[in-house]
Design a protein around this nucleic acid. Structure first.
Lengths: 161, 161
DNA sequence: ACACTAATGCAATATTATAACATTTTATTC
DNA sequence: GAATAAAATGTTATAATATTGCATTAGTGT
């Protein structure tokens, strides 16, 4: 029930993300170029954070040309700036953002087993962080929350063994 | 007032950390070797997260021998396992832990300007994370919170300009 | 002393990310 | 539509971070 792969048609999920990105870029008058689209598609290929060099390999496989690292990183920078992807620092990896319109740093539950990353959309954590920060007179700019653990689906799977 | 450098005698702070580490290792029957002590001292040299290669350089400077990367990383692994240091994923850096006895993942406020990292000791953030995780049936193992922003002291400094 | 284990030394290399500069593509102005 | 400027991408090299695998040394228990 909590298995993200069962909750939705994933192709639909990828298509949606690309459509949202196209629309957003048009609205902001920035260019959604081929390489940016390829990188974003790759990031959305599943719900697992994906490394820059993996993206590079995937694109090489799909299109018979191998972009150099800077090309991929530049595309990722663009996508990050426009809130279309998040970077997971603890994994050196990137994952698609569900809600690119509202600028935010994502909060993630990352499953140690299946590697899926679930983006939280609560404000509770931010509130707690802000409260703690305020006590120290600290001005929050970019809160980064990456919670490693075991997702509901993988717990069930290991229970049934 | 909030400047961590004004709150305490830092040499005292380093000495304390080393003493705590020695005591903890003895109690756990694990070895607090020379290299581990050197690395920990280096991590506690100030309150700023420090990279593995910086540690390497510092030790090379202080002791006329240059440990190879694996040596430093192994010492860091040991210190991490024993809760004596935390790793700041978003900075690829390491920082001393204030309370190594109680096993925990630290929560940090990291100042963009002075680079100081303030370790929080509240449970509020963990509660918020656990609440959000529970809603997704997710079992939390290692919550990682790294908040980039501007510390009180640096805010004052830039106000006075 | 001997065997055993933990810790370290060491060389090579993997992985992630960026710098610097050339070229191409796209947009803008005349 | 040609000239120009700006943005994006290509290309080469290299920086920064981290690990693997194996040799050696130092402790520990018998």
């Amino acid at each position: 029930m909590h298995n993200i792969l069962q909750q939705h048609n994933h192709q639909h999920c990828i298509d949606d993300a690309l459509a949202r990105a196209r629309e957003l870029c048009q609205r902001r008058q920035v260019k959604f170029t081929r390489i940016r689209e390829q990188v974003l598609a790759c990031v959305w290929a599943n719900h697992q954070p994906v490394g820059a060099y993996t993206i590079l390999e995937e694109i090489a496989k799909d299109s018979d040309r191998r972009p150099a690292p800077p090309t991929v990183y530049r595309a990722l920078d663009f996508l990050l700036e426009n809130g279309l992807v998040h970077r997971i620092a603890s994994l050196n990896a990137f994952v698609g953002c569900k809600n690119p319109n509202h600028h935010h740093q994502g909060h993630f539950l990352i499953c140690r087993q299946c590697r899926n990353a679930i983006e939280l959309d609560t404000d509770v954590i931010n509130s707690a962080i802000n409260a703690a920060a305020t006590q120290h007179g600290f001005a929050v700019e970019a809160p980064c929350v990456e919670v490693v653990g075991c997702c509901a689906n993988c717990q069930e799977l290991s229970d049934n063994e």
